[in-house]
């Protein structure tokens, strides 16, 4: 949690959980991916980010999750400015404040479902067995605790990924096309669960999606086009 305790980076911004200000990003040898992007997300709020393929949605999500650095601008996450953080600070922020759900699920294949579910919470030092039991029940994973990810269907794997993300009670949940690999029925079920759990835990949700239908279910939406917020 060292990153959170860095006084210089602590800025009192009670309302905004995530504040992105004029952020630009260019990968070496490529055209700019993001150009002066600004947006914010309040605590407990849900925001859908839509846009064409290659518009920079995933990149913006990664920057917001302290997974990658940016060239200019500033991102403030739970009161911490990311531009001043080193690798350890970013890692601490990811452990403590953020949780991630990806289209590919990205569970840890060598751990069981139960171990995957509690992994992030234990890593963050915030294991709450009652909450994890509750999550497990709500996600319908009670019978699957001893199985390994490869023994689950896509929908089941994504439910585990959501459970893992929320088990740590993060301030911000970042989700990148979380239902992109699922059919419509499974997709709806997963979204229902995610939105319910986000509401119950008071977590802010920043979700990247291609789907207008899913985007419509969130509090707000932003559209990214050519690296800029349209």
């Amino acid at each position: 949690m060292a990153g959170l305790e860095m006084g210089a980076n602590l800025v009192a911004q009670e309302a905004a959980m995530l504040q992105i200000e004029d952020v630009s990003k260019t990968y070496p040898g490529a055209r700019p991916v993001l150009q002066g992007v600004s947006l914010h997300l309040d605590a407990g709020e849900t925001l859908a980010l839509t846009g064409e393929s290659g518009s920079g949605k995933s990149t913006l999500l990664h920057l917001a999750g302290a997974l990658d650095g940016f060239d200019s601008g500033e991102i403030t996450l739970a009161g911490t400015r990311l531009s001043g953080l080193d690798d350890s600070g970013r890692a601490a922020l990811r452990r403590g404040c953020v949780a991630l759900v990806f289209q590919q699920f990205n569970l840890i294949p060598s751990l069981t479902v139960a171990q995957n579910l509690s992994f992030h919470a234990r890593l963050a030092g915030r294991q709450d067995p009652a909450w994890i039991r509750d999550l497990t029940d709500r996600l319908g994973l009670g019978e699957l605790g001893a199985r390994y990810p490869e023994q689950l269907s896509g929908g089941q794997q994504q439910r585990v990924a959501i459970g893992r993300a929320l088990a740590a009670r993060p301030a911000l949940l970042l989700a990148d096309e979380p239902t992109g690999n699922l059919d419509e029925t499974a997709s709806d079920a997963v979204m229902d669960l995610m939105l319910e759990l986000v509401r119950v835990s008071g977590t802010a949700l920043f979700l990247v999606t291609h789907s207008e239908r899913i985007a419509a279910r969130l509090d707000r939406r932003a559209h990214l086009s050519g690296g800029r917020i349209a």
Partner: peptide
């Protein structure tokens, strides 16, 4: 693919 999720969950590359 095995290391990246653990890194994303808050471990440094070091």
């Amino acid at each position: 693919p095995q290391l990246a999720p653990v890194w994303a969950l808050g471990l440094t590359r070091g």
